[in-house]
């Protein structure tokens, strides 16, 4: 009882009300207000279709893809504290993460498995959208945005794959960029030169992949995710 009184005083205090302008979500009015007065919740409409809440309709796959992106951003930022993208340091930093940094191994595992999961879950999300026919007008363009997001997800995973600078990383990227070289009229060679900053996977390639992985691709993905969510609402919701 005493606690409730304290809580009550907190919820009606000036400071609290300056942050949350609505009351507790116990009336439908306050529930509606807690969506449209909240920056983070206002990606949602105030009401959603009952159908879209059924787990067997969306399998929560789009949301889980976004959740994986959040986990990857957080663990990735922490990994950046210990990692230097240079041929002489990168591998040693990975070893330090494994054996010296507190929870470094856990952090790296979490980032690695989330990255693999994000590729798979985004693909599954695409299948769910396809099999429920949710790409049909007026949702055509959001499907296209989704395809670009899937490509970005794969590129994010792929650029991250080089960073540990172990045999798996080096040869995995070499195989992949050799595939790109098959593009005819010398375009493939030019593309691979641009990506690697040279003819082989070396120091320049490591820096380029690092910048793509930690800055350019995440920003592009975030912007497109914003467009994607906004379009889900504009196209009439799930």
């Amino acid at each position: 009882m005493e606690k409730n009184k304290t809580l009550g005083r907190l919820f009606t205090s000036r400071v609290w009300r300056s942050v949350f302008r609505h009351g507790l979500p116990i009336s439908n009015r306050a529930r509606a207000e807690s969506v449209f007065y909240n920056f983070f919740l206002h990606v949602h409409p105030v009401k959603v279709r009952k159908r879209s809440l059924k787990i067997t309709y969306t399998w929560a796959l789009g949301g889980l893809t976004a959740g994986l992106f959040i986990i990857l951003t957080l663990t990735g930022a922490l990994l950046m504290l210990y990692y230097r993208p240079s041929v002489s340091e990168a591998y040693a930093d990975m070893k330090d993460l494994q054996f010296v940094v507190s929870s470094g191994l856990f952090l790296r595992n979490m980032h690695r498995w989330s990255a693999h999961a994000m590729v798979a879950v985004a693909f599954l999300h695409m299948l769910r959208v396809f099999y429920t026919g949710s790409y049909k007008p007026p949702k055509e363009f959001n499907w296209v945005v989704g395809v670009i997001l899937l490509v970005l997800t794969i590129l994010l995973s792929y650029t991250g794959y080089l960073l540990p600078w172990d045999q798996l990383a080096f040869w995995g990227i070499s195989v992949g960029t050799n595939m790109a070289r098959a593009v005819p009229f010398g375009i493939g060679d030019k593309m691979s030169y641009l990506l690697l900053g040279g003819n082989i996977v070396g120091e320049n390639a490591l820096v380029r992949f690092y910048v793509l992985h930690c800055f350019i691709l995440p920003i592009a993905t975030m912007v497109l995710m914003g467009v994607h969510f906004w379009r889900v609402r504009k196209d009439g919701g799930v």
């Binding site: 986990i71 595992n109 979490m110 498995w113």
Partner: peptide, 16 residues
């Protein structure tokens, strides 16, 4: 993911 990360380690081979 936490459970996965506790029980399975990400691969790290010899230096490139």
């Amino acid at each position: 993911l936490s459970l996965l990360s506790l029980f399975f380690n990400a691969p790290l081979e010899w230096e490139a």
